[in-house]
Nucleic acid binder design. Structure first.
Lengths: 350, 350
DNA sequence: CTGTTAGCGCATTCAT
DNA sequence: ATGAATGCGCTAACAG
C-alpha cells in the first residue's frame, strides 16, 4: 500500500467527519469538545474519543471563534522588538496569556508609524479580543478609534492624555529621581540626559523632568542638560559626546534607555573615554551586559516581566466586562550600582 | 443625548450591515472588499465606500478564513525569545511575512518542551497555513505528525534527520572551523568549547565536531575539550572556568552561543580573569555588546535577518504548492575579530 | 454589472 | 441523554 497520492494535502477532518465516524450527531461531538461530559453517556464519549483519535481531528478555532463571537486571541504591538525591554515585557504578557487561556499575536512595528497602524488594523480584523500596545509615538487618534470601538486596550510605557484606557509602566519620576540623587551623591555636578527624541512620549519627558527637578533642588553648582539623539545618527552622538567630555564640571551621562546606553558606551569607547574616570555613566534598563562594560555600568532595573503580566491582567478584566475608569499602574525601578558611577578619583596609577 | 448605554460593546458591523446601508447586495460588498472593481459600477463602489466609512466596518478575517479555507496566518515557535538571535530571526520572518501578505503569530516555548507542544497544537488549531519553528530539542515525532498532516513546516537552526522538511540556518561547520583556525593562528593551543547540553541538537554537535576536526588537523600540541553546561547552573560554570584557567597551555574558550558567551564573560570577570591576558575568548552570535567587554570579544556573526527571511520564503513556496524534496539552506558565518583573541602577550605593564 | 443561494466548521436553541 | 436545525460573517457559484 503506497502512501496517499499527490492529494496529500487533505483538508483537516471536521466535526462532521468525527460525527460520522463515531456514528453520533455533531451536537454530541461538540459537547464532547466543550467538556460537557455530564450530558454524554459513557458509550458515546468513548466512541467520540476514539473517532477523534483515529481521524486526528483538531477543532477549528476560526469556526469556533466565528460562532461564539470570541477568538481567545490577544494582539500585541511592540515598537521595537530588538529592544530587550520589549521582549521581557512580552514574556510577561505571554505567560499571563497562557494562564488565562489566550493566544498571543505579537507584531513588531519596527518604529514605523505606518507599520504600527497597519498591524493595529490587521489585529482588529482578526478580531482579537484585546490589545496590548507599546506605541511608537502616541497616535491617540488611531488608538481612540480602537478604544471607542469597544476593543479593550492597554498601553505600555506611555501615558496617554486624552485617551481613556489602562496604562502600565515604570514609575518614571521615582526611578529617574532615584538615579539622579545617586549621581549627585557620588559627586557628579553636571548631568547630561541622552535620549531619543522626546516628542510626545511621556516616559521620556517624565524622566527628563524628574531629573531636572532633582538637579534644580540641589542648588547652584549643579546643572542638567538634555541631548536628543536619533538612534541611527552616530555622528551626532559622537559630537555630543565630545562636547560633554569637555565639560569643566564633574559630569555624568544618563542614558534614557538600554539601547541609548549601548550606543553611548560604544561611542565613549571609540573616543577613548573611560568610566568613571573620564565621565560618569548610568542608564535605564540595566541590560544584562552592564556588568561587563569597563568597571560595570550602573543601571535602573525595571520589573519588565511584571509589567507585561499586569498589562494582560488589566486587559482580561476589561474583556470580562469590568467597567471602571482608566487605570494606571506604575512599578518602581531599582537602582543597580556599579563602577561607572564610582566616586570621582583620578588616581588610577598606584 | 447621552452616550450609548451600557451596551457600548456593540458587535462590529458586518458585511450585511454594509450592504443594507449602501442598498446593495452582500456580493457587491464582498467584491469591493476583494478589489474586484472591474465588476462594479462607479456608483455602487462609491456607495459602498461611503457605507464602510460611516459604519466603521472591518472585514472579519475569521469568517474569510473559514470560507476560503486559508487564514493567511503563519505560526512561529521560538525556543528562547530572550535570545537576541531568535529575535533577529523573527524580524526577518516578520518582514517577509509582510511582503507576502501574511500575519505572523509568534510563540515563545521558553525552553519548555511541554509548552512547545502546546503551542504547536494551538497554532494548528488556529489553522495557520505554515509553521516556522526553532525547536527546543527536536521532537521529531510531533513535527512529523504536523508535517504529515500536510502543514508546511520549516525548521530553523536545526537539522532533522528523519524528518522531511525544509531547514534554514548557519553553516555551522564552516563557521566553527573559521573561528577555530583563527584561534590556532593566534597561538592558542587548547580550545575549550563551552556549550549548552548538545543532546540531539545538530547545530551544537556540528559546531563541536568542526572545532575538533580543525584542532586535530593542527597536530599534537593542540587539544580540544568540550564542556556542557546548563545555562542556569552558575556554580558548575564557575567550576569549569576555574579548571580551564589552570591549564598549562595557552587556552581559549569558545562559547557555543551568545548567551553562553555572556555567562562565560561574567564568570571570568568574577574570577578576576581577563581576556586575552589570562585566557582567549570567542563566541557565536557576536552580541551587540561584544565590543564593550574588556578589550572586546571576538565573535561569529550570523546573518540572522536573512535566515528568517529565507525561512519564510521557503514556507510560502510550500504553501503555494511547490513540491520538492526537503531543502537545506546554510548561510556562512562571519568572523569579527576583537581583542579577546589577541596574540598571547603577558606584557601589560609598561 | 448585480443579486440570490448555498455552504465553510462549529455551538446553540429546541425538540425528542 | 441525544440529535436536527439554524446561523456566526463571509465568499463563490450561479443566475439574471
Amino acid at each position: 500500500m503506497r502512501p496517499t497520492p499527490s492529494t496529500d494535502t487533505q483538508r483537516p477532518p471536521t466535526i462532521t467527519d468525527v460525527a460520522r465516524e463515531a456514528k453520533v450527531g455533531k451536537t454530541s461531538v461538540s459537547r464532547y469538545l466543550n467538556g460537557e461530559f455530564d450530558s454524554l453517556s459513557e458509550a458515546l464519549r468513548l466512541r467520540i474519543q476514539q473517532a477523534i483519535g483515529t481521524l486526528g481531528f483538531r477543532p477549528n478555532q476560526m469556526a469556533r471563534g466565528l460562532k461564539r463571537g470570541r477568538t481567545r486571541m490577544i494582539g500585541m504591538v511592540v515598537a521595537d522588538i530588538s529592544n530587550p525591554y520589549s521582549v521581557e515585557v512580552m514574556r510577561g504578557v505571554e505567560a499571563a496569556c497562557q494562564k488565562q487561556g489566550f493566544m498571543l499575536m505579537v507584531c513588531n512595528s519596527d518604529n514605523q508609524l505606518e507599520l504600527e497602524k497597519r498591524y493595529l488594523d490587521l489585529l482588529t480584523n482578526y478580531r482579537v479580543e484585546g490589545l496590548v500596545i507599546n506605541p511608537i509615538g502616541l497616535p491617540e487618534e488611531d488608538l481612540a478609534s480602537i478604544s471607542n470601538a469597544g476593543l479593550p486596550l492597554v498601553i505600555i510605557d506611555r501615558r496617554a492624555v486624552h485617551l481613556q484606557c489602562d496604562m502600565v509602566g515604570l514609575d518614571n519620576r521615582q526611578a529617574a529621581a532615584l538615579a539622579t540623587q545617586h549621581l549627585l551623591q557620588q559627586g557628579f555636578q553636571a548631568i547630561h540626559f541622552f535620549t531619543e527624541p522626546i516628542g510626545q512620549i511621556s516616559s521620556r519627558s517624565e524622566r527628563e523632568q524628574a531629573l531636572r527637578q532633582v538637579v534644580a533642588a540641589a542648588g547652584k553648582g549643579y546643572s542638567a542638560s538634555t541631548v536628543e539623539l536619533d538612534m541611527a545618527d552616530s555622528a551626532a552622538l559622537a559630537d555630543a559626546l565630545r562636547k560633554t567630555l569637555k565639560s569643566k564640571k564633574r559630569s555624568a551621562i544618563f542614558a534614557g534607555n538600554g539601547r541609548m546606553l549601548l550606543n553611548v558606551a560604544l561611542g565613549l569607547q571609540q573616543l577613548g573615554a573611560r568610566w568613571p574616570e573620564d565621565i560618569g555613566l548610568l542608564g535605564f534598563d540595566d541590560p544584562n551586559w552592564a556588568a561587563l562594560a569597563g568597571s560595570g555600568i550602573t543601571g535602573i532595573r525595571q520589573p519588565t516581566f511584571d509589567i507585561g503580566h499586569a498589562a494582560l491582567d488589566f486587559l482580561v478584566q476589561r474583556i470580562d466586562g469590568i467597567v471602571s475608569p482608566a487605570r494606571m499602574q506604575a512599578f518602581p525601578g531599582e537602582l543597580i550600582v556599579r563602577g561607572s558611577t564610582g566616586a570621582p578619583k583620578n588616581v588610577t596609577e598606584t
